[in-house]
């Protein structure tokens, strides 16, 4: 009985939580301009989205490209910067270590608006022209903490003598790094990369403040502008559905990987 009520509660909450997303997904398969007006099954919106036969499709496609480009570049840089930083922080002690870990937490706690405004002021202050580079740098600043936090546990689990042993056995430091250290850290680096990547895909506020006035649009700024013009373009419904599915797959991959790793330990 207790179990029945508990299950009901969980399912009702889950259905409420997903209702808007499910509605968007369902109505991505009909042609109607207005959500909630079912005019028969059709994959027309998907076709329009992929063939570009819709209003403002050129800018939508470039927004998708920008989003992916920014996410890939910033996540890749975050992964490298964050892994090197994690190795350094792992080998530090005392006050310096605590200070760096504290600073590393700030971008994660700060609300997006504050991060956005503060970086906007930074670029103004440095007379740095705002565009792709400023957005990518900003995304690196909030993506790297996640890489640091996913690589650190791997360093703690690692036997510190393995790296030294490789050196003693005649490996050069760069060989020891490539053949010994990085393979052991790789799972953490990949999780960190995926986290930084999704964070970047997800971002609206920071991009909004740091993109300057060169007309750089990412998906979220495009959607924002579109919705402000009054109502969503119908083709955004299939797009949202696809993004939702991609994130679902990415998250499941992370979780299955983690479950596997825990099993193998």
């Amino acid at each position: 009985m207790k179990k029945f009520f508990a299950q009901c509660y969980i399912w009702i909450l889950m259905i409420l939580l997903y209702a808007p997303l499910i509605f968007i997904a369902v109505f991505s398969f009909t042609e109607s301009k207005v959500l909630g007006n079912w005019t028969g099954f059709s994959t027309r919106l998907y076709e329009n989205l992929f063939t570009g036969r819709m209003q403002g499709s050129a800018s939508l496609i470039s927004a998708v490209e920008n989003t992916l480009l920014i996410a890939l570049v910033s996540a890749a840089v975050s992964m490298i910067l964050g892994t090197i930083a994690a190795i350094g922080i792992h080998n530090m002690t005392g006050r310096g270590k605590r200070a760096l870990l504290f600073l590393n937490n700030i971008p994660m706690i700060n609300p997006d608006v504050i991060t956005g405004v503060s970086l906007f002021l930074l670029f103004i202050f440095l007379h740095f022209s705002q565009g792709y580079l400023s957005v990518i740098l900003s995304h690196i600043s909030f993506g790297t903490p996640y890489v640091v936090l996913s690589v650190m546990p791997k360093l703690r689990q690692m036997n510190p003598n393995v790296y030294e042993a490789a050196l003693d056995l005649g490996a050069t430091p760069s060989q020891a790094l490539r053949k010994v250290l990085i393979p052991q850290l790789r799972p953490g680096m990949v999780s960190g990369f995926i986290l930084a990547f999704t964070m970047s895909l997800d971002d609206f506020a920071v991009t909004f403040f740091t993109r300057g006035t060169i007309g750089l649009e990412t998906l979220s700024t495009y959607i924002y502008a579109d919705a402000r013009k009054g109502g969503l373009t119908p083709e955004l419904r299939p797009l949202m559905t696809l993004i939702f599915l991609i994130i679902l797959v990415l998250l499941l991959v992370i979780n299955i990987r983690q479950a596997k790793m825990q099993k193998s330990e």
């Binding site: 997800d202 979220s220 959607i223 993004i243 994130i247």
Partner: peptide, 11 residues
Amino acid sequence: WINALMRTLAT
């Protein structure tokens, strides 16, 4: 993990 803006617009 899904853009809050998108979820909000859906809502």
